[in-house]
Amino acid sequence: MSRLEVNNLLEVKNLRVDLPVEAGTLHAVRGIDFHVERGEMLCLVGESGCGKSMTSLALMGLLPRKARLKADRLQFDGIDLTTLSERRRSDLRGARMSMIFQEPMTALNPAYTLGNQLCEGLIRHRGVSRQEARERAIYLLERVGISAARDRLDQYPHQLSGGLRQRVMIAMALMCEPDLIIADEPTTALDVTIQAQILRLLRELQQEFGTAVIFITHDLGVVARIADRVAVMYAGEVIESAPTPTLYANPGHPYTRGLLSCIPAPGKTPPGSRLQAIPGVVPSLVGHVEGCAFRNRCPQAQPICERTPPLMSLSGDHRARCHYADRPVSAPPQPETIS
């Protein structure tokens, strides 16, 4: 193990998640590799069904009971998560890894006060007194920008607006000073103005506390603004990973290029012009999947794409899973065909 890898907070090698469904086996995550360094913000980006949420649940040990997980390596700060007992796992969860969900209303228990829910983890994991826990809760609520924090502790979740609830979720995730926070689409349910405020807050706190964050989203605009590194997922695989500026300046995978060109960019896309759409639909991941999963939608697919492409290293930390990642296909891209 090299010096660099030791320093990584999270190491994932060849992670697979299979789900039995009526028609066979759904390969939700198909052998992904990634790592998270201490204190960095890694964005997992992809469309619905690409396996990004399954990945986060696998890391937290919250997969559905029927799901099967396999991994060559799944290490959190040197601890092997695949062999960990459920008891030690739940000690880790909340204390050193915590999660922020998309819908704070379902993640907060409506029957308990915010104070109860905020303090519970700290008392359980760190063995502090209730008074100390309350002090920390008040401190964090103030840090996430909630006024009258002391009074809020005795309120119930339904008394808060969506934006405030998500702030409480962030405070709750920070209570035990975890090393890693997994945030699964935390701002998707919020209005744009609130989203901007929450993202700004999350980024500030993450940098201040030195917490590593895996931020899961489908929104490339959000990714560009907050991520240190990006991993793009498609059909259960990480098809490209790179530091954020590199990915946007120099996307190596045709899917990434497609995603970037299909959102209208003010100032660049002439209003009312046709957008570059990615034709077709995401393939089914039920049953055996062979070759590049993107080839039926790829404008530059070649016969070789029936074979599974290797993860090619483009430069330093930039990798893409495409046969042509390092050499553009000479044939001109197909004209856009959606009518």
């Binding site: 028609a23 034709p279 077709g280 991941l285 062979e290 070759g291 999963a293 080839r295 039926n296 790829c298």
Partner: peptide, 17 residues
Amino acid sequence: MTTSSVSPTASSASTPG
């Protein structure tokens, strides 16, 4: 189930209309 049988080239992606 469907992926393994897709034709590899862009021809499948350009079914007219």
